[in-house]
């Protein structure tokens, strides 16, 4: 399974990058989202995956024992997911605003600096 996950992580990265290199604004943002997903998955995978034992201490126990999923990458990813929402919404709005001002969806036409607009 880890093998397939590694492949799919690579696929997410590739897809995200490809989308980022297109000239359409919407595709750029979709690319960002996909790369973000890929990164989360990569961290998750590298923290080793464990089935059926979440990092939650049992009712009568005082500490995690035996096999448990690593809580550290999970905490990292949790914040990353929430932060990426902030980033994505900001990016989406930026695109919208840029579209309003420049009136083009073509990134290549946005290369002028502020003074030239």
């Amino acid at each position: 399974m880890e093998f397939l996950l590694a492949i799919i992580t690579g696929l997410l990265y590739a897809a995200g990058l490809y989308m980022m290199m297109r000239r359409s604004l919407v595709k750029l943002i979709l690319g960002l989202i996909i790369i973000g997903n890929g990164a989360n998955l990569l961290i998750f995978l590298l923290g080793r995956i464990t089935k059926g034992s979440p990092p939650i201490i049992g009712e009568h126990e005082k500490l995690l024992s035996d096999i448990y999923a690593d809580p550290v990458p999970q905490a990292l990813i949790l914040t990353a997911i929430v932060i990426s929402f902030g980033l994505q919404s900001f990016a989406i709005i930026l695109v919208k605003r840029a579209y309003k001002v420049v009136k083009t969806d073509d990134l290549d036409k946005m290369k002028a600096t502020d003074e030239e607009v």
Binding site: E2, F3, L5, A6, I7, T9, G10, L11, L12, Y13, A14, A15, L17, G38, L42, L45, L46, R48, P55, I57, E61, K62, L63, L64, Y68, D70, P71, V72
Partner: peptide, 30 residues
């Protein structure tokens, strides 16, 4: 690039894990 990420992930998976940090949290959370 995606392919290299896959290779990288597999390479890392082949390495041993350092569990010291997660162990600390697991033992001291409660």
């Amino acid at each position: 690039f995606g392919g290299l990420i896959s290779v990288l992930a597999l390479e890392v998976l082949a390495q041993p894990v350092n569990e010291e940090i997660s162990k600390f949290y697991a033992e001291n959370a409660y």
